[in-house]
């Protein structure tokens, strides 16, 4: 992770230093992030996804590219974005912990889980660009995100918790405030995320184009020593965007 951070910072600084030369092509972008903060592969404890609601996962930013060869460019950008999620799942034996101060109830939950994730962040992507044609560009490279707003919380309702494990005390959980269980692990989330971005820019018009990027986190949203959320959750988001090219 440290190496990726150094690479991104180095390339970013190089590009900014080049900015004065006038060789840079800028693209101002607006997009929408659609995806999930999710384990890789569906865990067995998730029986079904019952609802997936759209979130204010917008992305605005700018990036600049400098030519490296005939068809190759090196680019870096700065983006302000949110990678959020609002989903309801049905869980069976889903590991969770209800915690307040030093007290906790930990066990396996079966029932409904309403999960909310919000990750407002400043992202610096650094990527190589391959120009297939004047209209098409393919992009790939790492990104670094600094989280400025974090939320990972939810409600477990309409089911039961088996404390400690499948043979532990079975405690009914209701579907109203006070009888359901809420959790909030916002403060446990990593402040820095790194990942890989793959994408394509398509510019059918002189200035305006469309983009599609897929970003996959290389690290979970929680530090690896945070064991309460059993599976490692990766931010996996696609960005559908519009850009304006300033050459």
């Amino acid at each position: 992770m440290r190496r990726i951070v150094i690479l991104i910072l180095t390339v970013g600084a190089t590009l900014v230093a080049q900015a004065g030369d006038g060789h840079l092509a800028l693209r101002a972008r607006v997009g929408y992030n659609l995806g999930a903060t999710t384990p890789l592969g569906m865990p067995a404890s998730v029986s079904s996804i019952d609802a997936y609601r759209l979130t204010p996962s917008v992305a605005v930013g700018v990036d600049m590219a400098m030519p490296l060869g005939a068809r190759w460019l090196l680019a870096a950008g700065l983006r302000f974005e949110n990678k959020a999620m609002d989903a309801d799942i049905t869980a069976q034996g889903y590991h969770m912990e209800l915690r307040r101060a030093s007290e906790s109830i930990e066990g396996l939950f079966t029932g409904k889980v309403s999960q909310q994730v919000s990750q407002w962040m400043l992202t610096v992507p650094v990527y190589a660009v391959y120009e297939c044609s004047p209209r098409w560009r393919l992009k790939a490279g790492p990104y670094l995100s600094l989280l400025v707003g974090r939320d990972f919380s939810g409600i477990a309702s309409d089911g039961y918790l088996r404390q400690g494990g499948p043979t532990g005390p079975k405690i009914a959980i209701g579907d109203t405030p006070g009888t359901w269980a809420t959790y909030d692990f916002s403060d446990e989330m990593r402040r820095v995320q790194v990942g890989l971005m793959l994408g394509a820019d398509w510019k059918p018009m002189q200035r305006i184009g469309f983009s599609l990027d897929v970003g996959i986190g290389l690290t979970g949203i929680f530090p690896s020593d945070f064991a309460t959320v059993e599976q490692t959750l990766y931010p996996i988001y696609g960005t559908v965007g519009v850009f304006y090219a300033i050459d």
Binding site: A44, W136, F210
Partner: peptide, 24 residues
């Protein structure tokens, strides 16, 4: 190309949520 492009968007979305799994 535009059609291909948006088909790709749809495919990515479907991929994220259609992971098959064994009956638990």
């Amino acid at each position: 190309h535009g059609i291909v492009f948006f088909a790709f968007v749809a495919a990515c979305g479907a991929l994220l949520f259609s992971c098959s799994k064994e009956e638990v």
